[in-house]
Structure formats: structure tokens, C-alpha cells
Simulated scan of single mutants.
Amino acid sequence: MWHKLLMVGVLASSAGACCAQAQTRMPDMQLAGVVPRNSAEQFELAFWESIKDSTHVSDYEAYLKAYPKGRFAALAQARIARLRAAAPGAVAAPPRVKEAPARPAPTTATAAAPAAVPARTAPAKAGAEIKDCPACPLLVSLPAGSFTMGNNASDPSETPAHPVTIGAPFAIGKTEVTVQQWNACVTARACPAVAQPAGTTATAPVRDVSWDDAQQYVKWLATASGKPYRLPTEAEWEFAARGGTATAYWWGAQMQTGKANCKECGQPWSDAAPASVGSYPANPYGLHDTSGSVWEWVSDCWHNNYKDAPADGRAWDGPNCRVRVIRGGSWREGSAYMVTSTRFKYDASVRQLQNGFRVARSLR
């Protein structure tokens, strides 16, 4: 039944000449390609494509919250009713939103360093590990340095590739913030309690947290440690994630299995949850899970591309900004999202099951 309802929504938004073709290939259809890129319709279609096979009531509730009169609203309501009937004792999780863009599979061109700007890497290796307080995440100190941010052969939002200079050393989380570390803030009554799925371990990355939630955490961490904790800027995040490399992935020009926690990155992998932090190899700077695991909030406001982006590594903010950048992909994404330049956006107040973060602080 839901396949038929989905077909109605797709046909309603497509030209009549496309109907027969859409009907024959609907189950594998890439919905984001039906409408103009970065349009409101594209985001709705990409959202639905990302949840249409979900077994979680909250995913469909999130769709209805974002698109109460959307083209798949009736189907979402039907799915909710069916799932609740199958599990009458289940309690729905807080609403969450997923807006994943369609992303082309990596190609040889994508794997190469951007040709328009000479690749420049950091001149020094990562430094010491830092532990500022018992509850603080372990940090790795990184040197100042220059690199090429973005990718001219990938998603348009990653263009233009441009030189960035990080003028001062800084420290960034060796891993994403864990459930245990988040709960220390909850115990201190400085962070909201965010329910994690059943079976989540203390060493799993905390997820379903918003940008606003992450801001509460870094504020508490700064008070607890006496150090200037914050979210990394987008430029700092990519500088750290590249680990001094200039290739599409921190491990090289081509995708390799066993390097990241994603659905096409090799076993072990589970659709239900990401692995514990640090389960996969670290990049050359000693940082784990910069590709896959959970999407990571950074401090910057979302811009559709890097035109006029700052070249000094500072956060690129904006007035009354409510849409913030997330980086790195998640365990539910495929290998195309593991490219180090991958970026997307979320409303700062929205909690989503695939979103987490890592912390940073200045060293001066």
C-alpha cells in the first residue's frame, strides 16, 4: 500500500511524460533528482527517501512535523499507525528530522585533490593528548597550518576549493562525545537528558542531540575545566579530519573498507546503531571517526557554498542564523559520504538520531 501512495506523490510532482518511466523504476528511484537541486521540494523528497523504509515511528513523526501538508503526509500517517499497531507498548522517541542530500558515488575525479587550488597541508604532526578534567573528553593538540578546504569535483556545496590558514594551534576531541561524557553534564544539571536507543553503551557516540544541546555541553565543559571549550569551526574540523592529507579520504584517493563506520565500509556494521567511538583506525592526527559514525555539529552557519568564505579558519556565522553545518556523514550513509569534504546542514534546534559532535578549544 505505501508503495502505491509513494507513487501518487512522485507522479503528482513529475511531468506527465515521465510517468511511465517513474512507475517502472519507482522502488530504486533517486527522488532528489526529480526536482531542482537545493529546492524545498528536493529537500522534502530527499528527506522521505532517507526514511521511507524506517521501522521507527519517530522518523515519520519528524517528517510530518517538518512537512505537515507534504506529499507523503498520508503515507507517513499510515506507517505510524501500522508500526504502533505492531508494537502497542512502544513509546515514540522525540521528533527528529533527516534531510540527506543525494550525493554522487566517488569517482576518480572526486578522489583527486582539487585541481583549481594547489593542495597545502599542515607542516607539523599532531601533538600531545590533553585531559583537562576527569569528565572531559580526551583532546589532541593540532598545529597551526594551511590546507585546501573543499572539493571542486564533488557536491556543489563543497566548492570552490580554497586555501585556508589555521593561524594558531588548537585542540580537538580525539573522538566524538560519548554517552558517558554527555551524562556527566546531565548529572550536573547543565545538559538535558536525551534518551538514547535501547542497548546503547556508555562508549557509543551520543546522538539525537541538537546544535543548541551541544552549546549547553561546551558551556558546562568550559565551566568544569576552566578552559575555553567550544565546537570546532568548520575549517578547523576539516583541517583536523584531513590529518595533513590532501586526498579525497584521509586514508588515500580511493575508498577502502575497514576505515570508517558506514554501511558500505565493510563489516562489522549494524544499521541499528554506530559502533563505540574509537572502534575504527585513527587518521594521521590520531582522531577517530571523522568519517562515518555520527554527523558532527560545527559552529558555523550554513552557506550554500564557499564563495566569500573566510580564509583564516574562523567560524563563518550570520545574523539570526538557525541552520548550522554538520560534517562527516554517519554510519547509515554509504561510502560516497565518507569523502572528507562532505558537508550538510540542520536546524540548530532539531534533534536527529544520526547527529552528534566533538569538542574543541583554543590553546592560546
Results as ranks from 00 to 15, higher is better:
Y306L: 03
Y337L: 10
N320Y: 11
P274C: 11
D59I: 00
A122M: 10
V117Q: 15
L64G: 09
T178L: 10
P310E: 08
V339C: 11
C301M: 04
K307D: 10
P101V: 11
Q180A: 15
A253H: 06
F72R: 01
Y346P: 00
G127L: 09
V218C: 05
Q77W: 07
L287K: 11
A224W: 02
R79W: 08
L11E: 09
T148S: 07
V359R: 00
C265V: 02
W297E: 03
H288F: 15
A214M: 11
F47C: 14
A260P: 01
M7I: 07
P36Q: 08
H56N: 09
E333I: 02
R96E: 10
D300K: 00
Y63T: 03
K98S: 13
A92M: 01
A20W: 06
K219P: 00
D59G: 03
P163G: 05
M338L: 13
V277F: 01
Q77Y: 05
R189L: 13
S330L: 06
I80Q: 04
F344E: 12
T233C: 06
T342L: 13
H162R: 12
T108D: 15
A240E: 06
A102C: 03
C133M: 04
A115T: 07
T233P: 06
G226R: 03
R324M: 09
T24L: 14
G173N: 04
S154P: 01
M1S: 13
V294L: 05
H56V: 11
V339N: 09
A17E: 14
A248R: 02
A102P: 12
F357K: 02
A100K: 09
R207E: 03
S210I: 04
F344W: 15
A76F: 01
P160D: 05
R361H: 12
Y337I: 05
F357P: 02
Y285N: 11
P156G: 13
A116Y: 08
P137Q: 01
A311H: 14
S146C: 14
A260D: 04
E49M: 13
Y63F: 12
Y229G: 00
G145E: 12
G89C: 06
A144K: 01
A22T: 06
R343S: 09
A360Y: 01
A116I: 12
A20G: 02
G226M: 07
C265Q: 03
A116S: 15
N305T: 00
Q216G: 03
G258M: 10
R322M: 12
V8Y: 12
V8L: 13
A135T: 13
I130C: 00
A116W: 09
V117S: 06
M149C: 11
Y280P: 00
A81P: 00
W237R: 10
A102M: 08
A124Y: 02
T110G: 05
L363M: 09
F47K: 02
A116L: 15
P205N: 03
S362V: 07
G252E: 12
E61L: 15
W250I: 01
A195G: 01
V177Y: 05
Q77H: 13
A275Q: 14
Q267D: 11
K52N: 14
A109V: 09
E264N: 03
I166R: 03
R242G: 08
G16P: 03
V298S: 06
N320T: 04
P114G: 10
